[in-house]
Simulated scan of single mutants.
Amino acid sequence: MSAAFATNGVVRLAHWGLMRARGADAASFLHGQFTSDVLHLGAERAVLAGYCSAKGRLQASFVVWRAAADELLLACAADLLAPTLKRLSMFVLRAQCKLGDASAELPLYGLAGEAAAARLGDAPVWSRRDTPEGTLIRLPDAAGVPRALLAAADAPAGLPALALETWRWLEVGSGVPLIEVATVEQFVPQMVNLELVGGVDFRKGCYPGQEVVARSQYRGTLKRRMFLFDVAAPAQAGQEIFHSGDPGQPAGLVANAAPAPQGGSRLLAEVKLAALAGGSLHLGAPDGPLLQRQALPYDVPLESAATA
């Protein structure tokens, strides 16, 4: 790995923003909107959550944690913070919950490598604790590199700077999707493996799109999943994927992408399960750059491939 992709240090996560929900009904309100259990979220952990439309399509994804008894913080893609804040605010109605943008007050930083490991110890993934530097959340490792999310007024002192493109490469490699403006309402949660990484609780109460999400889970109707690929070309969220055996229509969509240390890009893409049976996948056009599938850090069920 080149020096430009050194994986130890700290970086300001400019592509992430932070929302605050405060009030006696903040947890119950968000619990009724999100795919995960927010109502019973303890102070010692964070949780992944999706925010769906009535059709079960993801409008945003969050890392959520409790800052106080009546206050929760929600990290999401910066380009979605304002529209998501506006939409959520429409449904607060009489609930005692005030929503706001906390990004300027509490910037988000990414810690990777030894910088993260020294602060995390043996803390489990998605654990959350307050430290003198700020609130620290353990994220899933990527490419064997420990990672943490830090919400703090200032960056930790004395750490090497980490390139943002390095963090993005690790972020993509972790297999945890981030819904961005380019992919709003493109995916049911299972299409981007959100339930495989802890972002859907099938035991909780109702939320927008719950019936669609449950049907995809229990009726075997899911025909698309997210996988990890490398490609020898620039890539970005929202680009279409094409299959050599059916060039007339897209076979998938890029969810997230980042520059790779060896050149080209690493990307997470949702694709038809049937497209994995043979042929080749290409970025942007039927004759576009070839995608090379890589291993995700978790198993993806493929049982629907035969009927896709």
Rank of each mutant, 00 (worst) to 15 (best):
H15A: 08
L18E: 09
L18P: 06
R20H: 10
G23S: 10
A27T: 09
H31I: 00
L41C: 10
G42I: 02
A49Y: 06
A49C: 09
S53Y: 01
A54Q: 13
W65R: 14
A68S: 14
A69N: 12
L72K: 08
L73G: 06
S89D: 14
S89N: 13
F91Y: 15
D101C: 05
A104F: 05
L106E: 09
L111R: 04
A112P: 10
A116D: 13
A116I: 07
L120V: 03
P124N: 07
V125W: 06
D130I: 07
E133V: 01
G134F: 00
A142I: 00
V145L: 02
P146E: 15
A148H: 03
L150F: 05
A155D: 13
A161T: 15
A163Q: 15
L164M: 11
E165C: 09
R168A: 15
S174L: 06
V176A: 10
I179M: 13
E185N: 14
Q186M: 11
Q186L: 07
V188R: 01
V192N: 07
L196W: 05
F202H: 05
R203Y: 07
T221A: 05
D230P: 01
A235P: 02
A237R: 01
Q249F: 08
P250C: 08
L253A: 00
G264D: 05
L267A: 02
G278A: 15
G279F: 08
S280R: 13
A295P: 00
D299K: 05
P301F: 01
A305P: 00
T307S: 11
